[in-house]
Design a binder for these strands. Structure first.
Lengths: 359, 359
DNA sequence: TTTTTTTGTGTGTGCGCACACATATCATTT
DNA sequence: AAATGATATGTGTGCGCACACACAAAAAAA
């Protein structure tokens, strides 16, 4: 091994027969470099596989970076509160590295709220952005703006999507929703030994997100289809927040049917369904699978009303997203174009191990 | 918010009415500071809640750190090969930060091999050590030495243990084995609907590790005991590598019984059992739960012979352990005295999501 | 008291890079 | 031919800290 002395700009300069200033100009594309010198430096750079010492880089740098995070109001849905915690952690992590991380939030139910806040965010001339595509149309137009302004952005809570890819985000962080539905189906199947009806319940305030929910449903169905299965009938229900509250709609549906299992693709829908099951005392006969370690979900998981949760780990999504942005801005490291997080299965027996600290 | 100008040593010096040299001496306890000056500086330090800029700290430092990793031969057991990968990743991560990370390996079956290699490691005067307690007696004596030499060390693959704690390791990384057994029991229980026999199979080369295996077994049993369950009979088998090979011992046992489910607390024992189940064509009637994402385990998981794996994530354990050591040595950050990793449940449908990159 | 030793304190340099600034070279214009 | 501008290149300083060194003050020994 020995002393693997890292190559410095000084060394590059010597090898290329120019000064450090010229090397610096080539590296940062500041211009005013002769064609000849540029070629020489670039050749040496490539040959030595040079990468700047990020430590010194950060030390010497004057620039202050502004990273704006744009997510739904944390108090509207606990899911987004977990994201917020991830943002705060990232903020602490990068505080002393010239990184200013600010969180702006919008109303999950109002597209115009998103438009308003996103415009405000642009005002502050951010160097990078972390956000989640909630309102499809408004989001696309926002990303278009970002692309034109050449502001790198990362999306969390996202499925890979050709429309989005055209607006080249720096990275897309999320889970494979289709596969996620398959995991739910698998878990349902494992516990079921008698034929019967299974329900997929879409419970969501926001019609725009229904694409993701449909993906999960399709994954769920595809699993049973592949089994060539006729024992289980999969029924789909959609509940929207309208004249009648979620609670009463779910309650009626559960009262009227005897499902063997229910799959709820939304995190907040999960505990609402658990509540309804208990109300009709069907928590024993009906298996419930939902999403995420929300406080209320954990409550029902402990009691056994919820059998499995799939963890989408919003905390980690936000934290990781910001880390990628810093890698990009500060260290010029390569960031993957997508990062699919593991599909973590949470049960009564293992949920605490996911809560001790954030791994 | 505004420009949160960080406090520098220079500022501390000015506030305390001394020079930066004196502040430095107080911070690093280099001595030769008058009682009076020391008190003044310490007061300011406390008042300002000063923490050094880790970037500049690392830049200015001359010292080269040596971190020695001491683990079983990676080719002896794929589990330890995964650990090795984590070490290599950590090595890459810290290469340019004055951190020299070296891996030394010993024979999993030979205590004297551990003693020999651990002595060699000490020769190289490491600044910190990462290792795993395999041979109880030899390990304790090694840790005793480390404690006396005041060399910080971190243990992976470890259960919290009062004996170990007396030899105060910097951190213990592992899983809650008891709870891990409970998760296995829970998963078994979910899929079982008819009474029958369940087997816990201890398959291990190394008698010393049996304490951990016992913990898992006890967790497994405690779950069923709490159910007040009489439907399931839990039987324990222990196989040691002796005159007869593992394969034939397992094979005989499986041929002679009709288990509803088998729980194998060792990672390499898992695929051996899967192999035996297939040999006797009992993979349908017998549920199998084991440990870790070994290549062979994944193979049988895909086929459905293995139903669940619990991931102990040796890769992450090693990587995280080294990160902690660096935090300790370089940044003087606080390291938790123990870190229990989540009990990840792996199934046929979600295993790929754990393999795309290392999260 | 003077000399030596011990103890306390301040200054200066370098880590590898970014960036402002000074300087050199060459092509245009007057 | 001199003056001006445009382009190219080199030099120097600072980021915040660690650490070596020079030096001053106090204490101990002569």
């Amino acid at each position: 091994m020995g002393k693997r002395q890292n190559i410095r700009i000084k060394d590059i300069a010597k090898m290329a027969g120019v000064s450090v200033g010229t090397v610096d100009r080539v590296i940062h594309e500041r211009g005013n470099v002769s064609e000849e010198a540029e070629q020489k430096v670039k050749a040496v750079l490539k040959k030595t596989n040079y990468s700047p010492n990020p430590i010194a880089q950060s030390l010497g740098k004057k620039k202050e970076y502004q990273i704006s995070v744009l997510l739904p109001h944390p108090e509207q849905d606990e899911y987004w509160n977990l994201s917020k915690e991830g943002v705060l952690e990232a903020k602490r992590e990068w505080e002393s590295y010239h990184m200013h991380i600010t969180l702006d939030t919008f109303n999950l139910d109002k597209p115009e709220s998103f438009s308003k806040v996103s415009a405000e965010v642009m005002e502050s001339k951010p160097d990078a952005i972390l956000t989640a595509p909630i309102f499809y149309k408004e989001s696309l137009s926002f990303y278009q703006t970002l692309k034109q302004a050449a502001i790198p952005y990362i999306l969390v809570n996202t499925e890979i999507d050709s429309q989005l890819n055209k607006l080249d985000p720096l990275c897309i962080i999320g889970q494979d929703h289709h596969q996620s539905g398959r995991v739910a189906a698998e878990l349902t199947h494992i516990a079921q030994h008698e034929p019967g009806q299974l329900a997929v319940m879409h419970i969501h305030e926001n019609i725009e997100r229904s694409i993701h929910l449909k993906e999960k449903e399709q994954g769920f169905r595809s699993y049973f289809n592949e089994l060539g299965n006729t024992e289980f009938e999969v029924l789909t229900y959609s509940f929207l927040d309208g004249s009648e509250s979620f609670e009463s709609q779910i309650s009626q549906c559960i009262a009227a049917n005897d499902f063997k299992g229910i799959f709820v693709p939304t995190s907040s829908g999960t505990y609402l369904t658990a509540k309804a099951l208990e109300k009709h005392q069907k928590q024993q006969q009906t298996q419930l699978i939902g999403y995420d370690l929300l406080e209320q979900n954990i409550h029902y998981l402990k009691k056994g009303t919820i059998n499995f949760l799939i963890n989408q780990d919003p905390y980690h999504q936000a934290l990781q997203g910001i880390r990628y942005l810093v890698n990009h801005l500060l260290l010029h490291l390569k960031v993957p174009s997508s990062d699919l997080l593991p599909l973590e299965i949470i049960t009564r027996q293992n949920h605490t191990s996911f809560l001790n600290g954030q791994h």
